[in-house]
Design a protein around this nucleic acid. Sequence first.
DNA 1: CTGAAAGCGCTTACAG
DNA 2: CTGAAAGCGCTTACAG
Lengths: 353, 353
Amino acid sequence: MSRRETTTLEDVARLAGVSPATVSRCMNQPQSVRAEKRVRIQGAIDQLGYVPNGSARALASRRSRMIGAILPSLDNMLFGGPLEAFQKEVGSAGYTVAVACSEYDQQHERVHIRNFLESPVDALLLVGGHRDPNIYRQIERQGIPYVLTWVSSGDREEHCVGFDNAAASADLVDYLVSLGHRRFGMISGFTEHNDRAGARLAGVRKALARHDLSLDDDQLLHRPFEPEAGRDAFHILMSGSKPPTVVICGAEPHAYGALFEARDMGIDVPGQVSVTGFDDMWLASQTMPTLTTIRTPREEMGRQAAHHLLAQLRGERVAAPRPLETTLVVRKSTAAPPEPFPGPTKGLKRGQG
Amino acid sequence: MSRRETTTLEDVARLAGVSPATVSRCMNQPQSVRAEKRVRIQGAIDQLGYVPNGSARALASRRSRMIGAILPSLDNMLFGGPLEAFQKEVGSAGYTVAVACSEYDQQHERVHIRNFLESPVDALLLVGGHRDPNIYRQIERQGIPYVLTWVSSGDREEHCVGFDNAAASADLVDYLVSLGHRRFGMISGFTEHNDRAGARLAGVRKALARHDLSLDDDQLLHRPFEPEAGRDAFHILMSGSKPPTVVICGAEPHAYGALFEARDMGIDVPGQVSVTGFDDMWLASQTMPTLTTIRTPREEMGRQAAHHLLAQLRGERVAAPRPLETTLVVRKSTAAPPEPFPGPTKGLKRGQG
DNA sequence: CTGAAAGCGCTTACAG
DNA sequence: CTGAAAGCGCTTACAG
């Protein structure tokens, strides 16, 4: 235990017989140092067990090599995969990922953004695009790159790496209408502070309107993203006097809950009612019946978000990313409605989806 | 855009008419600064929109306020919850959490540990306790606190915040033996670099031995933690000439896969074969049949890991944490074996679990 | 309670 | 290709 506990770059320089600047260059731009010295320096590094101090490096270079990621939650199957993919990509470029959870709460997210800006992070990954403009102003004032995932459009398209939630749910509706469905129910997430949930609901409404259909107020239930909540909502929808012939779920946990509740209520899916999900998580292909849903390319989104950010960090001028494609995956939870049901309007166009 | 883009503590000091040292104190130990000055300083901070620079702070104070967490995976339902709980706890104490995934690979983990030590992090959260002693030496040389989760014993009990995997699976075996089972099959994770999986398997073996039973070699299959892998293994086990009357799964995804495969094979659970899980994730209570399993207190573990680390970071001397309790949750996937099956030995003691 | 000063361990123009 | 020197923006004994 000497007085000086940590070995510094200066120690390495002394042992290698070069200046600290050269050691620094050797670590950051090896090709700019004569090979012979590189060997001596590496030897000194190994001999001393030198570990560079990231804080000092960050301060001197004004780059922390840290990227902050703020996700709504980690305690489900949705965000972990993309985060892991993101971390892997930026990690191999030398960046560390700091995480925080907003718990689907704007105030929490705001605090975390502020903390990350203080850290300071070199870049930021967020989910969704709707937030107080002041937040964006604050981020941009610091001049750090950021990426908005899970959405493809909005005010800041050049920062969005995601897919078109509204278009995806509209696809779903077109398909369901083509099956003959006219009475729709929906279990949605809360839309106030969640533009993904909002877009999915809007997409459903818009597509229904195109078919001269609509979603009745009492057929739309907002619930947190939990299977239990989905069960509860499904039970309510199916206990009404005129239950829907199809229940669209804005998030997959809702659909799992709906399927479980149907089983417990003795309701046949898709015989009596069709059920759809959104995201195509692993369970969707294992439920009974298997779930018709929208596949979202989540890992791919994580990777692309990383590349988008890394390009900006390299100082490249980047174009607005192209929206990622979603896919309608038809499985066994959807079928024609149980009996011919006269639609609320005439002139219904079949099979146009 | 002035030449100096960032406002620094010095700017605040100048505007408030105090020294930089006082501004620093005002932020870190407010009570040591006269109230009147505190107000002036806060005013200056607000007026300038001052954001302290974490890198400089880290360098000067030799504390980065960052904790590194290395988990085997984020892309499943297991580690996200505890990580979120951990982040929440340490976050409210002012710490940032950096994450990385080892992908159940020692070399990956080693690289991430090294990167974190460079960052440098103030503390480290790891999963499991078995790793190259050199790694521990390296961590301890830097003098940073660390916590080993998901395990309760081993060489470094004072760092473990977890539960006794072996005892938990032994409980399960005792219960199954008490039901009358004598022919056991097991789907286990790979045990070479995973001491949790190793302990679960060892616990099963030890408990069986206590009952004069054992696990035949061809009744033990090692698989990655995926439902599909569980399906595959279950299929193999049940296709043998003498299939087991119970399949113990070392991880819950294996059990889900087993249940799905049983359904597809037309095998009645628990009529023909019992199936057990380990962890009690949300799906366990929703499968058909519902799953008998071991409940592990994962969120609580995340919180306790945080408190254990925070106490050390405060410089407190901490005692070895008490192991967390696991619970045998009996549901519908287990029952007596289909027919009286003569055990390999006499003198079997019933109901001793 | 407060300030002047040194220092944390790097990086990076600048000059050669 | 290399070195001397300044500087990144804070914190913290030390003295008062």
